[in-house]
Design a protein around this nucleic acid. Structure first.
Length: 833
RNA sequence: GCCCGGGUGGCGGAAUGGCAUACGCGGGGGACUUAAAAUCCCCUGUCCUUAACGGGACGUGUGGGUUCGACCCCCACCCCGGGCACCA
């Protein structure tokens, strides 16, 4: 008699797996592959149960797929560049690499303590030169193709991080890391990647993802790309020969309703328009205020609409109307043409602006039927589609037809045409910080921007650097780094001192896993062809846009570079819910973390794993409960005890082969056990393959265990071969979720060589089949009784049995039966008049 | 404002249009024990009714609808969570 001792068992099997290299996966064209991956973790140092949920789901899937005979690649690595290391270095005077590597060591120890089935040979760390040189390599390839370019532009600046942020890193006008720090706007020269060159590809290829990705992620990406079809129209500025303003509109069919042209406060044309206008100085005061507010960024969204008349007019090229040119804070310089036509009758924003500044409201679209709009009775704009009115030659056309004709006419007359705009902007990747990949570019006084030649990669990040956290790029003060010679002319030159956004590191890392040792390329074509695309990617919803859109972009660039031939890197994506404690996301800053190591020490990692799988379906948030994990601990103990009790007797017994089980001679007890085991198997398999609901898998296995308990004693009247078959099925079904216990039980049952090459149990329908069914009898849809019937009963006969059941016949009591609904094996509904 | 989720016992949650509340937690009772822990067994939606066995009504956010039958499908609405948002 021995007790379930998770500490002992878990250490034992982890050692065995390690010695066997149990989870090493190698390219094998003869075998079908399965690539399952959890998102690259940032090595912050601690792992709590929130992280572990992610890995537990991935590990259960990896182990299950191995048992289904697939060649499973399940790697892990570290997203080890980034600001926290730099900040820690400034605060505690520890070199970033030291801080980072010691965190990695800690986290790796926790992962090992949990026994995740990673191929540790493939571990990567993005701050290693052998990794980041390929970031540089990708950058250079993009530079060659015009996909990387340098430009001076307005960018998001986080005063806390002291660096530029990408648009994707701005959340509600604040920095993604400092949620209460509004980002500022700064004009800075920096490097961009032309993700916009792939706007349509990113949008269109979502069609390939719609079965494997959550809808909400696809919608979020779609919104982010923000494709919008419309038209561009040029308005001549009156009394200014050759000057014109272009507007972008999605409703060119409302152009006869325009009562002004409005420019963004930072529209480049503005200073020129002012010249020679009376009241110029007063205007400039308002103008400056509006521009200031835009620079402060975050205020814009909340601000009331505000603007001023420039004193200039523009001519509507269709109607010939003369429209005042205004400036207003709600027009964005970065979107469309930075100018709009103001149509108060049919656009709510324009309506609000027109109300405030008394601009005329015109109705130029009327509904096809229903009440007609009237400009004097409007309390809001009506952005409707219907029939054009008061629109010159376009009147009476439907909105769609008017749009088409107006665009065609604008084009033929040379003042406009169709135009599609996107919300997506190019990806600014320059960071004025230290702990990241150096951008491999040299500035030469004579030759200008010179790329570092491939054979000089990697451009190493100097590591003996004094970090102060102040001023600009720390690398700028490292003279040995900055000062260099031009690769072209050998003259004096200086290096780029900004580093790359770390999202670059994580945009392609999953390809590196397929070929981690390659020193001549990021990865070779064959392993990528074999392993890709990723069959199952698992991670948090917070990367729905950031990481997942950058990765898709990189994939398309790699495809165009001829490195791969697929269009999308990730076939199926799963976003797991958060782990919460006391109603808030588990995090260091909330002070509510449940440490992974603590749980492993207290209950064992198998218990912690089973609890995270059982407490909620994986897509939902999970509220951590100490009592809940206690329950799972009891459950694993119970499994262990039941098998332990019979292990000795069963050790020498061969389990009955599924196809040889002789049902005809089986006792009721044997039949009950076999039935429950196979019913469980059917549904657990479905949970793993289709539903991804591991909470119900655990519940089902609990029921199987309860059945075993109910059939006690198990040593009398029971064919040992059948009992062994059942407990083996139980062991195998438990093993993806509690792998150490699974191995231990398997060994206790007399097997050598571990579970690694053991197949998932075979399902046999006849063994799952019930012999008798409890059929529900309803009268008018209300439950009135139940009868036990044997299988194979015809509908008529089943109906007859229901009607003649004493309880039922009593209730019918001579009333006319209008209809009978008979569902074999399930129910009879008797409809009375 | 628009777009996604979601609303079921005391709690986490389960249910192809067919017994609502599986499984677990918590609670109550019992067995084992000198005792405790552990373990095992039974009960546990609300209300009404019965001495009791039992029987009945109500019940999945609200109101309608479809259906023999609705947590599930349709329409309208309320609440919660998330995303997007002066994007022209």
């Amino acid at each position: 008699m021995s007790e379930y001792d998770p500490q002992l068992i878990e250490a034992k099997w982890q050692k065995t797996w390690e010695e066997q290299g149990a989870f090493h996966a190698d390219l094998d064209p003869a075998r079908p592959k399965y690539y399952v991956l959890e998102m690259l973790p940032y090595p912050s140092g601690t792992l709590h149960m929130g992280h572990m949920r992610n890995y537990t789901i991935g590990d259960a899937v990896a182990r299950y797929k191995r048992m289904r005979g697939l060649n499973v690649l399940h790697p892990i690595g570290w997203d080890s560049f980034g600001l926290p290391a730099e900040n820690a270095a400034i605060k505690n005077a520890i070199p970033p690499r030291e801080w980072t590597n010691s965190n990695i060591a800690q986290m790796k120890a926790v992962c090992k303590r949990f026994g995740f089935s990673y191929d540790w040979r493939r571990e990567i760390s993005t701050c290693e030169p052998e990794y980041y040189r390929w970031n540089q390599w990708f950058f250079l390839r993009m530079l060659e193709r015009g996909l990387a370019y340098r430009k001076r532009s307005k960018v998001n600046w986080c005063p806390q991080c002291q660096t530029v942020l990408a648009n994707e890193q701005v959340v509600n006008g604040c920095c993604w890391r400092h949620e209460t720090t509004p980002v500022e706007s700064k004009e800075i020269e920096q490097w961009f990647l032309k993700i916009t060159a792939y706007s349509d590809a990113l949008l269109d290829d979502m069609a390939q993802l719609k079965d494997g990705w959550p809808d909400r992620v696809l919608t979020m990406q779609q919104n982010w790309i923000g494709k919008s079809r419309g038209a561009r129209v040029r308005f001549q500025v009156a009394k200014m020969e050759g000057k014109s303003v272009e507007v972008f509109t999605t409703r060119i069919d409302t152009i006869y309703g325009a009562s002004a042209v409005i420019l963004a406060p930072d529209h480049p044309l503005l200073p020129g328009l002012f010249a020679g206008i009376p009241g110029h100085a007063a205007m400039e005061m308002v103008w400056n205020r509006l521009r200031q507010r835009i620079l402060r960024g975050a205020e814009l969204a909340a601000a009331e609409k505000e603007g001023f008349f420039t004193g200039r007019f523009a001519v509507n090229p269709f109607s010939g109307d003369t429209l005042p040119i205004w400036v207003a804070n709600f027009v964005l310089a970065e979107y469309g043409t930075g100018a709009v036509m103001c149509v108060p009758g049919h656009d709510q924003r324009d309506f609000e602006f027109a109300e405030k500044y008394h601009l005329p409201v015109k109705i130029v679209v009327q509904p096809v039927d229903g009440p007609q709009l009237h400009p004097d009775r409007m309390v809001e704009a009506h952005a409707i589609y219907g029939r054009a009115v008061n629109s010159g030659p376009y009147s009476k056309l439907t909105s769609a037809n008017a749009t088409e004709k107006l665009i065609a006419d604008a084009r033929s007359k040379g003042f406009g045409g169709a135009e599609t705009t996107y919300r997506l902007k190019d990806w600014g990747i320059s960071r004025q910080r230290y702990w990241g990949t150096p951008i491999p570019v040299i500035y030469c006084e004579k030759c200008g921007i010179v790329p570092v030649p491939d054979n000089q990669l990697p451009v190493r990040l100097p590591e003996a650097v004094h970090l102060t956290g102040e001023g600009k790029s720390p690398l700028a003060s490292v003279l040995e780094f900055v000062n260099t010679t031009c690769p072209k002319c050998s003259g004096k030159a200086r290096r780029e001192t900004d580093t790359m956004d770390t999202f670059m590191d994580s945009s392609w890392y999953f390809y590196r896993y397929t070929d981690t040792q390659n020193s001549t390329a990021p990865f070779a074509p064959e392993p990528a062809r074999y392993w890709f695309p990723i069959d199952q990617y698992i991670g948090g919803i917070e990367h729905a846009i950031l990481h997942l859109i950058y990765s898709r972009f990189f994939c398309k660039v790699m495809r165009d570079l001829g490195m791969i031939s697929h269009n999308e890197p990730v076939q199926r994506l799963f976003s797991q819910g958060m782990v919460q404690k006391d109603g808030r996301a588990m995090s260091k800053s909330h002070g509510n973390v449940v440490g992974a190591i603590d749980m492993a020490q207290k209950y064992g990692c198998d218990t912690a794993r089973v609890y995270t799988l059982f407490a909620a379906p994986p897509a939902k948030d999970l509220e951590w409960s100490e009592q809940g994990i206690e329950g799972c601990s009891r459950f694993l103990n119970k499994v262990y005890r039941i098998i332990e009790r019979h292990a000795e007797r069963l050790r020498g017994v061969a389990a009955a082969a599924q196809e040889q089980v002789d049902l005809a001679n089986a006792t009721p007890k044997e039949k009950a056990l076999l039935r429950r085991a196979h019913q469980t198997l059917k549904r657990v398999t479905n949970d793993f393959d289709v539903r991804w609901h591991f909470n119900t898998s655990v519940a089902l296995i609990m029921e199987l265990v309860n059945e075993l308990q109910a059939q006690e004693p198990l040593d009398t009247d029971l064919d040992p071969a059948i009992l062994k078959l059942v407990v083996e099925m139980l062991t195998l079904m438990v093993s993806p979720m509690a792998p150490h216990l699974g191995e231990e039980l398997w060994e206790m049952l007399g097997h050598r060589g571990g579970l690694l090459r053991v197949e998932w149990p075979a399902y046999r329908e006849e063994l799952a089949k019930e012999e008798q069914f409890e059929v529900v009898i309803q009268i008018n849809g209300r439950l009135r009784g139940k009868i036990l019937v044997e299988d194979g009963l015809g509908e008529d006969e089943l109906g007859e049995r229901a009607l003649t059941d004493p309880r039922i016949s009593h209730l019918i009591d001579g009333k006319a039966v209008a209809k009978m609904v008979v569902v074999p094996r399930k129910l009879v509904n008797i409809v009375l008049r």
